[in-house]
Design a binder for these strands. Structure first.
Length: 479
RNA sequence: UCCUUUCUAGCUCAGCUGGUUAGAGCACUUGACUGUUAAUCAGGGGGUCCUUGGUUCGAGCCCAAGGAAAGGAGCCA
């Protein structure tokens, strides 16, 4: 087994020999000595290798620059220099591969995020992105651990679906038909999907929720954690065409239980990252501070990254109904001074500026808004007795906006069917979904969390394309 | 998709009112240097000025169309 640089940096076994592998982050060559900062991705820190030319000829490290991959055998010693407590005094340097400095894009200096994004295949070699991806891993692990420990079952919803009735957004078509010469219906010349692979029109999933409901109404508590796809032409720092969504679904859960779970869950996974990714979060906190220096003072975050994360973990989320939220907006000085671009009145869908005001200016903490007007929400949400609102909840986070959307589901067959007809959703195609209400229906609730938005919040990154290894967005499917 | 801004060396950027051979720092390369920390110092190589078309004696700079990127908005997770 190899020894990781993380193990060497944590070891107390001085004067013993180690063999480490890694990529050169930087190197400084003097007449008699060379210093190599080596990183293998096991942790944020670099290990300094000291090459003494009395012991290893200078020719042996010829051509080693940023990006080269090495295997080093050497002795762990206390560092004589200032910047670190330990070095490896090299006994043997093996070069796996050089990286030609004329053409290797990365340098031992600060690169713009934009530049690194355009070289996404090399992002894992950089300080900031390797930290982001270690944090991403920790969060994914925490998600599974949380649900497992609570007795939830992990369910894989299908990625290819025939259901196009969910209405969650534009979809990517899946087909094996020849695009240049597709099978057509004789009558009207339209595409004949009976000839397609599945014998019907299919798409990539936009949500695993409906399948999750089927599973929950039998298994009790389940969650999905998988890729979802939206063919929306969204060019923002918060949207991806391919993203990972976590969707728990619980039988015998009312909206209040759903809210409590969402809050507890968010606090748990954020705390897990804080407890397990300190070095990486320190790096990301520094990065964010650096980025915010360029901003105007009133646009900067009120607290540093780690303080913000601890604040979320240690404070209760604010809970208001949609109706109360509208009142708060209407009574705000911001509204009276006509600073909102979009008008506020009961019935509107809250705009980003409204959500930001509530979260960042008014409450200054995460907010859960409930009981939205039924006309701006999906067909499956449970209708309240007032006949105007549904048992929906959105969790809003500072800097991110909506991070979770969820609801109690309508479990009464007649009410659900009526609502589907009102919203032009074909009830016959959705017979399998309606069967859950037809046979042994039960109250149930669930929510969806965009995993990248969670990583965005915890890492303090500002563009969602920087928290997924290989981002898919309009005009971009490289790498 | 809409609005605003941007596109010059591998990277970050400068480039005057349209005028000779387009510059700097870093990176790379050669050399110097007794432990460096984005090492330092000295020399050298490196350009499809996003693309296409136009105006002009002359375009990196002006005009038009297109492309891409960033930020904001919409849609949402």
């Amino acid at each position: 087994m190899k020894t990781s640089i993380k193990q060497v940096l944590e070891s107390t076994a001085f004067d013993t020999d180690f063999t480490v592998n890694g990529w050169v982050r930087n190197r400084r060559i003097n007449k008699n000595l060379a210093f190599i900062s080596l990183n293998d991705g096991s942790c944020a820190g670099n290990l300094q290798i000291v090459v003494d030319f009395d012991k290893i000829p200078e020719e042996n490290i010829k051509g080693i620059g940023t990006g080269a991959c090495l295997r080093i055998k050497g002795t762990l010693v206390k560092s004589v220099g200032q910047g670190q407590d330990r070095d490896i005094a090299a006994k043997e340097v093996h070069i796996y591969g050089l990286a030609d400095g004329e053409t290797y894009p990365l340098q031992p200096r600060k690169h713009s995020l934009e530049f690194i994004r355009e070289n996404a295949h090399l992002r894992s070699r950089t300080t900031v992105f390797s930290s982001v991806f270690r944090v991403r891993h920790a969060l994914a692990y925490a998600v599974h651990k949380y649900f497992n420990d609570k007795g939830f079952y992990y369910i894989n919803a299908p990625i290819i679906t025939a259901s196009d009735a969910e209405g969650a957004g534009e979809m990517f078509r899946v087909t094996t038909l020849d695009l240049n010469n597709p099978a057509r219906n004789k009558e009207d010349g339209s595409i004949n999907f009976k000839e397609d692979f599945f014998g019907k029109s299919t798409h990539l999933t936009v949500s695993g929720q409906l399948e999750g409901e089927l599973m929950a109404l039998g298994l009790g508590n389940i969650y999905t954690f998988g890729p979802t796809f939206r063919a929306e032409n969204s060019n923002t720092t918060r949207h991806l065409a391919e993203f990972w969504m976590i969707e728990p679904e619980m039988a015998f859960f009312e909206l209040e239980d759903n809210m409590a779970l969402a809050e507890d869950f968010m606090k748990y996974v954020i705390k897990y990252a804080v407890d397990n990714c300190d070095a990486d979060l320190q790096i990301l906190q520094e990065r964010l501070l650096e980025e915010e220096k360029a901003k105007k003072e009133d646009e900067r975050s009120p607290m540093p990254l780690l303080e913000k994360l601890n604040f979320v973990v240690n404070n209760d989320f604010e809970k208001v109904t949609y109706t109360e939220a509208i009142e708060i907006l209407l009574n705000s000085n911001h509204y009276k001074k006509k600073k909102f671009k979009y008008d506020v009145k009961w019935g509107i869908d809250l705009q980003s500026e409204h959500e930001r005001f509530l979260v960042e200016k008014h409450f200054k903490k995460p907010v859960i808004i409930t009981n939205y007007p039924k006309d701006i929400k999906a067909f499956y949400m449970k209708q309240n007795d007032d006949n105007k609102t549904v048992r929906a909840m959105d969790v809003l986070f500072p800097g991110i906006g909506e991070i979770i959307g969820g609801s109690q589901r309508e479990e009464i067959l007649e009410k659900l069917e009526t609502r589907m007809k009102e919203m032009n959703i074909p009830t016959d195609e959705m017979w399998w979904y309606l069967d859950t209400r037809r046979f042994g229906t039960a109250p149930h609730s669930g929510f969806g969390l965009g995993f990248e938005r969670l990583v965005l919040f915890v890492s303090g990154m500002t563009n969602i394309r920087d928290v997924i290894p290989f981002p898919r967005s309009p005009k971009n499917a490289d790498f």
